[in-house]
């Protein structure tokens, strides 16, 4: 650790101590001002701590109830899973959780799936890490996990760079290769998206030349072919931090994501199928995603059997 970052750490500790001291009834305001005046960086350190305090104070009620809601649901989920094991679908459960090598296949094949309740981290051979988002599944082939197929949903890949490795990730007819990087792939019946956070990948698909996608870019399929555009690297795979971030993304892909997270089928009016969406949705428990999207896009949600349909707002 450098001397500089050491002193920054010390300043931050002092800022935390002052923030705590200011809560008491008898504050040494002169000491506080003297500390601030001693170094302009003290002010910045204090600001950053004060902002945390203010944010927590502003949302105290919501945070408290969210934390309270989280604790029991985890326990319930565990019980449900156990119940599934005991309830007869043992083979299926084991295939999902552990993966069963298929004996007649020349290469080992394993499937991994994340259920609707949460994402799942998987460490494959050779320094390949995959995070599956809810209701997503992959199939892995080869001794060194050389071929990964995304069946549906979204998966985030963190692959240690190794020039000797040949890894391909496929999703439908899309094929991603030359990988040594971090990226997120999303695939539904009608749409495909890859966003690259770090490094470069090559994407091939029928009827199109190979496309190089580098960090800070995304490749989207839509009704009018493939589009390469820029995306904030921090937004790639942001679902792992509880956000769905979109940059000019076809609405069908957004709707498919919301279906997976909310567990309800989301359909789109044909008139909106070619619409694109940019913005960020907070995942939470998934139940408010659709309403938030509707507010941001100025569209209406109609509930229907087994789910909901997004349509244009009626003229007023």
């Amino acid at each position: 650790m450098t001397a500089r970052s050491n002193s920054e750490k010390a300043m931050l500790d002092q800022a935390v101590a002052w923030a705590a001291a200011l809560e008491s009834d008898d504050v040494d305001w002169d000491g506080y001002m003297a500390w601030l005046e001693a170094d302009p960086r003290h002010r910045a350190a204090f600001d950053s701590i004060a902002l945390v305090s203010a944010a927590v104070d502003d949302h105290r009620a919501e945070i408290t109830s969210l934390i309270a809601a989280q604790a029991p649901s985890k326990a319930r989920r565990r019980v449900l899973r156990l119940f599934t094991y005991a309830g007869g679908s043992i083979a299926a459960a084991i295939a999902l959780m552990v993966g069963v090598p298929l004996l007649w296949s020349p290469q080992p094949v394993r499937s991994y799936a994340a259920d609707a309740h949460g994402s799942r981290d998987i460490a494959l051979a050779n320094g390949i890490h995959v995070t599956l988002s809810p209701s997503s599944s992959i199939t892995v082939r080869g001794k060194d996990a050389g071929q990964v197929e995304l069946a549906s949903g979204e998966a985030y890949f963190d692959v240690r760079h190794d020039p000797a490795r040949s890894l391909t990730v496929t999703a439908g007819s899309y094929r991603i290769s030359d990988i040594g990087t971090r990226f997120s792939v999303n695939f539904t019946r009608t749409a495909f998206r890859i966003g690259v956070a770090d490094g470069t990948v090559s994407v091939s698909s029928p009827g199109s030349e190979d496309v190089q996608v580098s960090a800070g870019h995304q490749l989207l399929s839509g009704s009018d072919g493939l589009t390469l555009s820029s995306v904030a690297s921090s937004d790639v795979g942001s679902w792992r931090q509880g956000r769905l971030s979109y940059s000019n993304t076809p609405l069908p892909l957004v709707a498919a994501d919301i279906s997976r997270y909310s567990g309800k089928a989301v359909q789109i009016d044909p008139s909106l199928e070619k619409t694109h969406f940019s913005g960020t949705l907070v995942i939470g428990d998934g139940s408010r995603l659709l309403a938030d999207l509707a507010i941001l896009m100025g569209v209406e949600v109609h509930s229907q059997e087994n789910g909901a349909r997004i349509g244009t707002a009626a003229p007023r």
């Binding site: 949302h59 919501e62 949705l281």
Partner: peptide
């Protein structure tokens, strides 16, 4: 609408950090 989203994002970030 934007503020609502930012608020909810802030709440989600803080909640997950606290847990």
């Amino acid at each position: 609408a934007e503020d609502l989203i930012l608020d909810r994002e802030e709440i989600a970030t803080l909640t997950s950090a606290i847990t």
